[in-house]
């Protein structure tokens, strides 16, 4: 079986995979990075969003071999030690999560939104979140969290 070589959260990682193995399986099962979640099988819910070479992707829809040689950042790589990334902090401060299951993908998407739209208004954020489903919050506090987190990242 082929081997895939990745840089995950700044560290080199190799995994032996089948052709059908998905990136999310390598993260969760081989590397034990279980913060990236799987909530659907049709690329709709966004619980599995990670950054690949700086771009947000749904890791349930990428074959591990497609990511060979790429740098992957998962939710576990967003902050180090006791400190939270400003977007993680904003989600907590704004009560932007309840059960926490969609949260890792939601935060990874939010960080990308903040990078592309540092001063996004509510409508833009709601549109940009179309690939991430949350069943708990009704999104109001997620929208506030993205705005708050983006502001903190600007000042960052």
């Amino acid at each position: 079986m082929p081997t895939v070589s990745l840089t995950v959260n700044g560290k080199a990682a190799n995994a032996t995979v089948e052709g059908r193995t998905l990136l999310v399986q390598v993260l969760r099962e081989t590397l034990k990075l279980t913060g990236t979640h799987v909530g659907c099988d049709t690329s709709q819910c966004g619980a599995c969003v990670v950054h690949v070479d700086g771009k947000p992707v749904k890791s349930c829809t990428v074959l591990a071999l497609q990511a060979d040689g790429c740098a992957v950042t998962s939710i576990e790589g967003l902050s180090q030690g006791a400190d939270l990334h400003p977007m993680q902090q904003a989600f907590r401060d704004c009560h932007g999560l309840q059960c926490g299951f969609c949260t890792p993908g939601m935060i990874m998407t939010a960080v990308d939104i903040a990078k592309r739209h540092p001063e996004a208004d509510e409508a833009t954020i709601r549109r940009e979140l179309e690939g991430n489903l949350c069943r708990c919050t009704g999104y109001a506090n997620i929208v506030k969290a993205v705005q708050t987190g983006a502001a903190a990242m600007r000042q960052g």
Binding site: T34, S74, R92, G100
Partner: peptide, 21 residues
Amino acid sequence: VKRVEDLRFVRGKGRYTDDIR
């Protein structure tokens, strides 16, 4: 009060059933 459980959830450190091996 800000939620104590969030400190693990926002870091991806929640422990859901499928995370247990």
